[in-house]
Each structure stands twice: as C-alpha cells, then as structure tokens.
C-alpha cells in the first residue's frame, strides 16, 4: 500500500509542471535536438532569466548558446536576425516584452519585412519570447500589451500561450518554425501548474483551442483573459444562470484561426471578444472587422468587445483593476446577449 502511494507521488511530481518550467523544458529539448538553436537576451545565462525560464541552461549548453547580452535591445535583436539569416535559430528573451519597443525597428523592418524585400533570398527562423500583459501594480511601462502594436507588421507570426501545456507545445513549434514568431507569455501565469505528458508533443501555432465547448455564445479570448473567462463561468454556475458559452483561446493572433472561429459563430450566432489590449487599435478591433467581413450574416447581435481602458495602466491597485476586464463584466456581457430578443 505505502509503496504504491509513494510511486504515485513520484509520478505526480514528474508530471506536474510549472508554467516557467514548461517553457524551460521546451527550450532545453529543442536546444538538445538542434544545435543551431540558441538563446540570447538580458540575464538569460548566469542569472537564469528573470522568470527562470533559462535557469542553468548555460551550464549544459555553454555561454555562447545561452548568451548574456548587454542591455541593447535593438542591437541584440538585429544581431539575432543576422544570425538567423545566416543559418542559426535564435530565441530572443525579452526580459519584459515592453523593452522590445527599443527593437521595434529591427522587428518590423528586418524580422518582419526582410524576407519579402529580399525577394525570398533569406528566411528568418527567429523566436522572440517573454512576459507581456498587465501584472500586479507594475506601473504603466511594465504593463504593456505589445501584441497590438506589432499586429500590423507583415511577415510576423504572433502567438500567445496560456497554460503550461500549450506554453511548452507552442514554444517547441515556434522554435521549429522557419519564420519570425513573436511569442507572448503572461507575467502573471508563470506559476500555473499542470500535469504534462511524459512524452514529447507539439502544439500547432495556427490553431485556436476550444477551452470549453458550448452553444449559446462564442467567447474569443487569449492569454490571461482565458482564465478570466473561466472565472466568469464559475460565477455563472454559482448564480445558476445556466449560460452555455463556447470559450475559444485564439492562441494565434496573427494569423487568426478563422476556421475554428467561424465554425463556432455559425453555431452560436453571438460573439464576445475578451482581451487585455487597449480598445483602440487592439487585437479585438481587428478580429471584429474580420468577423464583420466574413460572418456578418451569421450574427444575431452586434459583437461585444471587452477590452482594457485606453489609458496607461495605473499603479494603484483599484485603478489597475478598473483598467482591465474583470470576470463579472464577462458575465454581464453574456447576460446582455442571452436576454436579447432575436
């Protein structure tokens, strides 16, 4: 009896993985599989990364493959692009994705557009990953959602992960992809835990994930807001409201998986988009126009867009909460659509 219990515990410990470790495992596995894969960024080596995603990898792979760079975002990003053009597969860790504002030129002009302007002469297998999103009272500059700023850049893939499982599978796929991939993690999700399979797996970069199947309303979301939507479902259950939404984690913000989205909208005819971006020029703004372009006839009601306020994220905790969408607002939106007479 005791023996089997112990075995069970051991098995559990092996499988239960923290979000940041899932990312670390993905990086480790891919570096082991392909020696042209390397990581560069601020404090990725000796320090192990601000969120420990690359902890001790330099001991295993050496300092060139886990390269501590000076604080020079535009130049080390450009350097990674040059390395990618000449056959390596770099992973840039943005200590905070916000710092990549300094690398905007390299990401837009070089990572995004160079393959095209070169008429296909070069490809750029590059991953740029790191924490984005609104944390806990980190102040405006450290609470940015750059996915919207980069959304218009041609040639980039933009991917967001939201669970340890998809974080690992998606990062592995991003590293193997021959294109530049902006890979957004979320600063508040690094300590999520989940049982991960022992065997190797990959998650496709271009497929949305149906988090909860349902028939009443399609909720499109990504990153941390996925968990807010699940919180909202708890409220729905607690109050016995009986709504049955289909919650879809977009995963790929560019391109959108319109196939999965369309199949759901054809079923529910109602849509709520929940994002952490600011409303103006946000991810939802673009998605909403695509839905209007392609699925207008399917809609029984105007799409509801739940976005952050168009303001710099305030430091004060109460104000910060008012800035981003809360689960109760998602419930209200469902209520609004469900009580609508159509």
């Amino acid at each position: 009896m005791i023996g089997s219990h112990l075995l069970y515990l051991v098995w559990l410990r092996m499988a239960e993985t923290l979000f940041f470790n899932a990312l670390r495992e993905a990086t480790d596995e891919e570096m082991g599989r392909d020696d042209t894969v390397f990581v560069l960024g601020e404090d990725v080596g000796h320090y192990g990364g601000s969120y420990k995603v690359t902890k001790d990898l330099y001991k295993k792979y050496g300092e060139l493959r886990v390269l501590d760079t000076p604080i020079a975002e535009n130049s080390f990003s450009g350097m990674a692009i040059g390395a990618a053009m000449t056959g390596l597969r770099p992973i840039i860790e943005g200590m905070n994705m916000g710092f990549l504002l300094l690398a905007f030129n390299q990401i837009a002009n070089n990572a995004g557009m160079l393959r095209y302007t070169s008429g296909g002469n070069f490809k750029i297998p590059l991953v740029i990953r790191g924490p984005g999103g609104v944390g806990r009272q980190l102040g405006a500059e450290h609470s940015q959602r750059l996915e919207a700023y980069f959304h218009a850049v041609p040639g980039l893939k933009i991917v967001t992960c939201s669970t340890p499982y998809n974080a690992k599978g998606l990062l592995k796929a991003a590293i193997r992809d021959d294109n530049p991939v902006l890979f957004f993690e979320h600063v508040l999700l690094y300590n999520l835990k989940e049982d991960l399979p022992d065997h190797e797996y990959i998650c496709p970069l271009d497929q949305a994930e149906i988090v909860r199947p349902g028939k009443d309303v399609t909720i499109l979301t990504y990153s941390r807001m996925r968990h807010h939507c699940l919180q909202a479902m708890k409220l729905v259950e607690k109050h016995g409201l009986g709504y049955d939404p289909e919650i879809i984690d977009l995963i790929s913000l560019k391109p959108f998986d319109m196939e999965t989205i369309a199949a759901s909208v054809r079923k529910t005819h109602r849509v709520i988009i929940v994002e952490e971006c600011m409303k103006t020029g946000g991810i939802a703004a673009e998605l909403l126009s695509l839905i209007n372009d392609q699925l207008f006839d399917e809609l029984d009601a105007p799409v509801i867009r739940l976005s952050s306020q168009d303001i710099p994220t305030p430091y004060n905790g109460k104000l910060e909460n008012l800035t981003i969408i809360q689960p109760s607002q998602i419930v209200e939106a469902m209520e609004q659509l469900m009580t609508l007479q159509v």
Binding site: N74, S75, F76, S77, G78, M79, A80, I81, G82, A83, A84, M85, T86, G87, L88, Q106, N110
Partner: peptide, 9 residues
Amino acid sequence: PVATGAAFQ
C-alpha cells in the same frame, strides 16, 4: 546589428 549577427554566427 544584422552584420554583427552574421559575424556572431
């Protein structure tokens, strides 16, 4: 920076 990356390579 891009040229520097080729040299790094």
